[in-house]
């Protein structure tokens, strides 16, 4: 298992990034509360954000090496067992979030929500048996790549939306209200969060469509209501209904935030939990 040291190093980098993000936001809130000045804080905050970005980038690079090393060793990509699926998600979620963190400054504070969430995946991957997997014959299909790739963007955009929703909910509490007071108003964060959820719906739809084409090629049916298909369809419905409700009715911002988080939780259970209650996530895998 030559990839394990790279994996642990990558996870450690994520952990340091999470700590740096939390310290940075805490320091910002405290300083703003005591000094009341903004310009003196900004340079310190910018340095902290650079550190978080550096650590996240390092982590993504280390996880890239982890995946490449494993790929070369076992001869196929991270598509089969939960251990490699989680590493792959840590990599892709980290990559998309790092780019978003770099390019969209207003998202940076969401790192105090997003990075601990990714920590859950990191802890999970560390308690799993790092076993090798066998590539099923039905996985030799380009649509698998499209299916998995779209799914990664779907989850990443859900995660960013959840980061914003988490900030909205957390700032209801006194302690966090102070920490997040430099952020734009909830109305703006809510609007931004739902933009990401709409983007997530596009990629969720693409994922289901590519998955159906793959399933048709691989198992001779495009839809069969197996565990993962049923759960992912329910997830799509929940996301679609949430966006429909948000655009049609005056959904309270906090309720909207809860809806966003529930979509991510549902997605998490669907894509990482299904293998626990279904012997074969997709029938025909074996």
């Amino acid at each position: 298992m030559t990839e394990l040291p790279w994996l642990y190093a990558g996870i450690a980098a994520y952990a340091f990034a999470a700590i740096a993000a939390l310290v940075g936001v805490a320091r910002l809130g405290t300083t703003m509360a005591t000094v009341g000045g903004v310009s003196s804080v900004s340079e310190s905050q910018r340095n902290n954000e650079r550190l978080v970005l550096l650590l996240m980038t390092t982590s993504v690079i280390l996880l890239t090496i982890t995946l490449a090393d494993r790929w070369l060793r076992i001869g196929h990509g991270p598509f089969v067992n939960l251990f490699e699926l989680l590493i792959s998600q840590l990599f892709s979620l980290g990559l998309v979030y790092t780019i978003a963190y770099w390019r969209i400054p207003v998202l940076r504070t969401t790192s105090v929500v997003v990075l601990p969430l990714m920590g859950v995946l990191a802890v999970w991957v560390m308690v799993l048996e790092p076993s090798d997997s066998v590539f099923p014959p039905t996985y030799h299909n380009p649509w698998l790549w499209a299916h998995v790739g779209f799914g990664k963007f779907f989850l990443a955009f859900c995660l960013i939306g959840t980061g914003l929703a988490g900030v909205i909910l957390l700032r209801s509490y006194g302690f966090f209200k102070n920490l997040f007071r430099h952020l734009p108003d909830n109305v703006i964060l809510d609007k931004l969060a739902w933009r990401f959820m709409l983007l997530a719906l596009v990629f969720d739809s693409l994922m289901l469509c590519a998955g159906a084409v793959w399933a048709q090629d691989a198992w001779g049916r495009y839809w069969a209501w197996d565990a993962l298909e049923t759960s992912s369809f329910l997830n799509w419905l929940l996301l679609g209904a949430s966006i429909h409700a948000r655009t049609t009715y005056n959904v309270p911002i906090r309720l909207g935030a809860v809806l966003i988080i529930s979509v991510l939780v549902f997605a998490f259970v669907t894509y990482f939990g299904t293998p626990f209650y279904s012997e074969a996530a997709h029938k025909g895998v074996i």
């Binding site: 734009p184 108003d185 909830n186």
Partner: peptide, 22 residues
């Protein structure tokens, strides 16, 4: 990305005046 408002806020924040209005 609905960022116009957020970016406007960032600029105001950098100048030291953060509006309280929604």
């Amino acid at each position: 990305l609905g960022l116009d408002d957020a970016l406007r806020h960032e600029k105001q924040h950098a100048k030291g005046s953060v509006p309280a209005s929604r």
